[in-house]
């Protein structure tokens, strides 16, 4: 598989580490239901057949976390953005 890193360009998947679904957000640790929310955040994942936005880490390249739009049925990749949200990837 080849992934389009927004900084480095298209690279072989060997250069990346996979994390999984990019949708879960770290819950508010101070919320009264934090224990349940964290349980869901850490353990519960959807397993869609089709489009998913997922986190990959370009560890052998620019060391940016990116969000890849991928179809789990075909491995077709629609695009990728920096996970930090900024267009430049200047997270720091």
């Amino acid at each position: 598989m080849r992934l389009p890193c927004p900084y480095c360009g298209v690279r072989d998947a060997h250069e990346f580490s996979y994390l999984g679904d990019a949708a879960p957000r770290r819950p508010d640790p101070a919320a009264p239901d934090a224990a349940d929310a964290f349980h869901d955040y850490v353990y519960l994942r959807d397993n869609p057949a089709g489009a998913i936005r997922e986190l990959w880490y370009h560890g052998a390249g620019c060391r940016r976390w990116i969000v890849v739009d991928r179809d789990t049925r075909t491995h077709a990749i629609a695009g990728a953005t920096f996970a930090s949200g900024s267009a430049s990837g200047d997270a720091s």
């Binding site: 994390l19 770290r26 880490y57 940016r64 976390w65 920096f82 996970a83 930090s84 720091s92």
Partner: peptide, 8 residues
């Protein structure tokens, strides 16, 4: 650490 900084 990069995950914490870039994603969290």
């Amino acid at each position: 650490l990069e995950f914490c900084l870039q994603v969290l």
